[in-house]
């Protein structure tokens, strides 16, 4: 008995539907699958099963595209609607969705852009996408009770430093923060800064992601804090004068970017 005339298993049906939904407009890679699936489907209408499968395929592309438009709104602004749609289409065809949550769609877009043809014209796109992805992580990450100055004082040099999960760090050679604040509708032509720019992303008091440029040593200090090092270990690794350190830590505690170690 061939596959065609036997009753299909649930798994076979689901895999064939997955292939039909994921196929781009050029379905040649899955054409046999399509024929196999269609013969197991029926419509009580003049519409063919293929036409009705198309409803799910289009829906899949629209939903993922909409989710990408929300997360990558600045990429969309730079590229314009048409080029952004092309990018989304190519991304969706190339990368299946591994997350059930559409809000977390697009994790691989920064990587995807590194080898994408659009990078030629817009070499800063992967970094911009990375920054927007960090905004997404910052928006949804949990936050724990924040480190307070009195707790910090109690621990002294042995204070274990742990960043809040919503704190993110990015090093880039592009003036991305200028780009984000730009009001103009024209496509910006960015030139590299000629020096690295260190960006801290965290949440403001309204739970919205916010970004700011920080000094290189502040960046390395925060990076080191990811590994739950103590205050003295962190300061030893990043040699900075005490006045700077005091100022940074006071500021960071005010922003609530460290966790309370006793949590």
């Amino acid at each position: 008995m061939t596959k065609e005339d036997s009753t299909p298993t649930l798994r076979d049906i689901q895999l064939a539907m997955r292939n039909a939904v994921r196929a781009g407009e050029h379905v040649d890679t899955h054409v046999n699958d399509h024929q196999w699936l269609s013969q197991h489907l029926e419509t009580k209408s003049t519409d063919s099963p293929e036409k009705r499968l198309e409803i799910y395929r289009v829906g899949y592309f629209i939903r993922r595209n909409e989710a990408l438009s929300v997360t990558y709104e600045n990429i969309k602004k730079v590229l314009g609607q048409d080029a952004f749609s092309v990018l989304c289409y190519e991304y969706i065809v190339a990368c299946g969705s591994k997350t059930y949550n559409l809000n977390a769609e697009g994790e691989d877009l920064p990587q995807f852009l590194k080898t994408h043809w659009l990078k030629e014209q817009y070499p800063y796109l992967p970094d911009l996408a990375q920054l927007e992805w960090l905004f997404q992580l910052t928006f949804d990450a949990p936050s724990y009770p924040a480190l307070l100055p009195e707790t910090a004082a109690r621990y002294g040099d042995f204070l274990p430093l742990t960043l809040q999960p919503h704190v993110q760090l990015l090093k880039t050679n592009w003036p991305l923060l200028t780009l984000l604040n730009q009001e103009t509708k024209e496509t910006p032509h960015l030139t590299p800064l000629g020096r690295p720019c260190y960006i801290l992303v965290h949440r403001d008091e309204n739970h919205q992601p916010i970004s700011r440029e920080i000094e290189p040593n502040a960046f390395y200090l925060l990076k080191k804090s990811r590994s739950r090092s103590t205050l003295s270990e962190v300061c030893e690794a990043v040699l900075t004068d005490p006045e700077h350190l005091t100022h940074w830590f006071a500021n960071w505690m005010q922003l609530g970017i460290f966790q309370n170690p006793s949590h």
């Binding site: 298993t9 649930l10 049906i13 689901q14 895999l15 539907m17 997955r18 939904v21 994921r22 799910y56 829906g59 899949y60 939903r63 993922r64 299946g96 969705s97 591994k98 997350t99 059930y100 559409l102």
Partner: peptide, 25 residues
């Protein structure tokens, strides 16, 4: 319904065949 297959999330409420196999699962 089902909404994922073969490790891919399909972001839709896809129908199931009304079979005994689907009921048992």
């Amino acid at each position: 319904c089902f909404s994922n297959a073969g490790g891919d999330q399909l972001h839709d409420l896809l129908p199931l065949p009304h079979t005994d196999e689907a009921i048992r699962l």
